[in-house]
Design a protein around this nucleic acid. Structure first.
Lengths: 340, 340
DNA sequence: CTGAAAGCGCTAACAT
DNA sequence: ATGTTAGCGCTTTCAG
């Protein structure tokens, strides 16, 4: 059983008694070929177990037919949704997807992009976390870049697909306020990060409702479990009078649930909890958590579509904004009385 | 601002006043080059913003330097862990990863593998779900295949990295039995699927413990939310006398929790629940769920290592078996009395 | 230490 | 409709 290297287009041509161009035509669908020839070619290919080399084709076409996808972390449920969306779209469009995770490290992100460029991907979809300068460079050297879920402040010209986070936070805030809550704690992302839109939406909505914003109730944490927990614990311990907590992400929500339990606070009797990101466990919690669902799958799908299918429409008219949905469950109740 | 196509090795050679072979040597690290020349080349490359084309290199080397990763579903928390592990390892080894999801569809899986072969990946890591024949063909045509987390019965010669599922189920079963439970419901995977090892471990352990196995308590479900729910509901309604449920996967565990709540069963007072897969929500549940942690990240990492780093040791001595860990929380209690 | 030259497998004119 | 040819960007002998 000889370890034969895989057959090339030349082998197939020879076996079928035709020129290599004909084989190429048959396989790329381009051009014409008589039914008879086509059959002979296909038969020869099958016989030889021939697979066209994407490397050869790519070199000639100067593009690989694949795209790069850069996320912070594939194990994050929301990121995973986005990845799934991209895969679904890429599949229908016939391209492959090179995925990598930057874990919030800008230098690592830059390195990933470098590698993707070397691979000659047709485009890059990113949930960016790194330096604007790096991405500016990437956008210049790479054929096309699309941001998903988040953007970089200084790169407004890069097309993007986002969830309407501001709208989501607004509906959550209004919901909580409508229940009578006035001292609402806000667990947000790290300062300076794009998460800023969430915090701004919180403040704005409260202002519109005529509820004064207490700076003490607005806290920020790095997007990591420990930081989220520390932030939630700090808030709930420092201000025993908060009657509701709005967590701006599922990690923060998780932290809030854990801290509330640790502090023996009943939910929602003692404190109401609501969060952004309607992840799977929201329904498994006791009580199930009220949350705002963000269309991760759609974001990924649309971003991929934007990249591969509508290079023309890209960037026209600012970011694509996808709606969120408030899912009311049992974790929020009407204001009763201060905890102490 | 002209839209210039990216610089090639030729451009760099010209700019640096050297031959293309020298540029190649400098960039691939191979061969020798005087410090001075090296500097000139690097400077020219930087000036031209040159990125070596993986396509050119790949064509010459007849391999892309990347690997393919085929999973059932990237949004599954366990799969996501495996993906993360593969990415981590591939990164240290300098290769990229093409990821795709087959969603349990054999034909789709076969198509993905076809595409990966066309991309000339250096190897494929798969959590296989499809036909043995397809994978047999893949293993033949592709340089190398490694199975992760699960195997195909007829393909024992394909190297694999697995969690010690049998051991995990055994410890869970012993734990439950040790608590006094005798009528333990088993929620397992679809019949005929590799999940069979879990069910067998359950039966064996019970037998060893001298506890009779009631067929009626062992049910199987497709790995989907609705099927899992139906199975759990069926079991708990049909047999009001089960005092404990062992869910062989996190979807099944989720279903058990939901059904128990629906049926107003208190956990663990009325029914104890334990499951395989220590996913994030296990700790958020109320009560937190006792579970067996399976090392998804390690499985991915080791599989990748096996593929890229130890082509020699592959397959030697059967599957690599990674240990699991029983994480006891509050969802299981001592046997008290029948529910009715 | 360095350059010239021969392809790797494929596509796209351009002939025929 | 089909064959011939010229590269795509790179690595790698083989000379010098």
């Amino acid at each position: 059983m000889a370890e034969r290297r895989s057959a090339t287009i030349k082998d197939v041509a020879a076996a079928a008694g035709v020129g290599i161009a004909t084989v190429s035509r048959v396989f790329s669908g381009t051009g014409s070929a008589s039914a008879a020839t086509r059959e002979r070619v296909l038969a020869a290919a099958r016989e030889l177990d021939y697979r066209p080399s994407a490397l050869g084709r790519g070199l000639k076409l100067r593009r690989s037919g694949g795209i790069g996808l850069v996320v912070p972390d594939v194990t994050d449920p929301f990121c995973a949704e986005v990845v799934a969306g991209v895969l679904a779209c890429a599949r229908t469009l016939g391209g492959h997807v090179i995925v990598d995770a930057a874990h919030g490290d800008p230098s690592r992100e830059a390195e990933i992009v470098d590698r993707l460029v070397e691979q000659r991907v047709d485009g890059i979809i990113a949930l960016p976390a790194g330096e604007e300068a790096d991405w500016r460079a990437a956008a210049r050297v790479c054929s096309s870049v699309v941001f998903a879920d988040r953007v970089l402040p200084g790169l407004a010209d890069v097309p993007s697909v986002l969830a309407d986070d501001a709208g989501g936070v607004r509906s959550l805030t209004e919901y909580l306020a409508g229940l009578g809550h006035r001292r609402i704690g806000f667990l947000g992302g790290a300062p300076g990060r794009p998460r800023g839109v969430r915090e701004r939406a919180f403040r704005d909505t409260l202002a519109q409702l005529g509820v004064p914003v207490e700076e003490d109730l607005v806290v920020a944490a790095r997007p990591a479990r420990d930081a989220a927990y520390a932030a939630a614990a700090g808030l709930l311990q420092r201000r025993a009078d908060v009657t509701a907590v709005l967590a701006a992400g599922h990690l923060l929500g998780e932290a809030a649930v854990l801290v509330a339990r640790e502090l023996d606070l009943r939910v929602p009797a003692d404190v109401s909890i609501a969060m952004m990101d309607d992840v799977a466990w929201a329904e498994l919690c006791d009580p199930p958590l009220t949350a705002v669902a963000r269309p991760g799958h759609d974001i990924g799908y649309r971003a991929c579509e934007l990249l591969l299918r509508e290079p023309a429409r890209r960037g026209r008219g600012g970011p694509v904004l996808l709606p969120t949905e408030l899912v009311v469950r049992g974790s929020c109740g009407p204001l009763r009385s201060a905890r102490r």
